[in-house]
Design a protein around this nucleic acid. Structure first.
Lengths: 145, 145
DNA sequence: CTGAGTGCAAACAGTTTGCATTACT
DNA sequence: AGTAATGCAAACTGTTTGCACTCAG
């Protein structure tokens, strides 16, 4: 993910955006937390490290990252928006969400991607992104039923 | 969709839930509005018809429908939760969302469903539902670029 | 030095909840 | 009659915004 931090910083600079401390901290923290991160989780983690950043700046930075395609909103309907870094290579994953315990596991699937690509070529929209979420019970909850 | 209204009412009754007027009105209105409906849209439509229902009851009914698998939250990240009726046959569709104008079109794709089914058999979770959203530009925005 | 960016706090929007009242069954 | 369910209004939660201050370039 350090790769992504550099990419993000470069893109911000190139776009004429200042590399302020709060901005950098949010970028690093997002990279650190990885996938499906909420603003609150970032705020908490930042505070843990002693480097306080106002919520407003967190939201403003996340919005900026989203606008620059450096991150993506992958909000899965629990009231709070979730973001994750976007790999410049286009590599990405999707999520399995456990309905019982809320656990989330990422997965990748080549066949699924292929089906989506083909589908994208068949519709009238110019598709440039997609989200897939599978819901069900995780192994732990399954045995604990 | 009348089919669904009956199904929903029967399921509610069978579950020991009262078929109160507000509840029925919400069920009918959800069926009427169809797909990707917000609580506010239901409230507005209900008021149009002269049959006022308190927001609390709308939220409570939607939550109940979701719990009974009669409806599903398909929140696509604009701050408000969206619901849609669940067809008892398992038939369903997904959505294309336009990043420019926000337009949403439903679509169905057999190949995509097959890929997801196969994938579901390959993962450790017991998958029982899935969401797919394709994002991009709708035909109108494409030509207007 | 100077404006982009920040932090604060107040404003908002959507949703949830406690409680007295209503109305299905 | 009895209790599930409602409506209201107040409480919450997540997010946005106005404004005076700060600091990266």
């Amino acid at each position: 993910m350090d790769r992504w931090i550099g990419h993000a910083q470069r893109t911000l600079e190139r776009g004429g955006y200042r590399l302020s401390t709060p901005r950098s901290v949010v970028v690093e923290t997002l990279a650190d937390l990885g996938c499906r991160v909420t603003a609150k989780e970032i705020a908490d983690r930042v505070r843990e490290r002693g480097q306080d950043v106002g919520v407003a700046s967190i939201y403003r930075t996340l919005e900026l990252l989203d606008r620059l395609q450096l991150a993506r909103r992958v909000d899965m309907a629990e009231g709070a928006a979730r973001y994750e870094p976007v790999d410049p290579s286009g590599e990405h994953h999707h999520h399995l969400v456990c309905d019982s315990c809320g656990e989330v596991s990422p997965f990748e699937d080549r066949e699924l991607e292929r089906a989506i690509e083909r589908l994208a070529g068949r519709v009238a929209y110019a598709v440039d992104a997609h989200d897939v979420t599978l819901r069900g019970e995780c192994p732990a909850c399954r045995t604990a039923d």
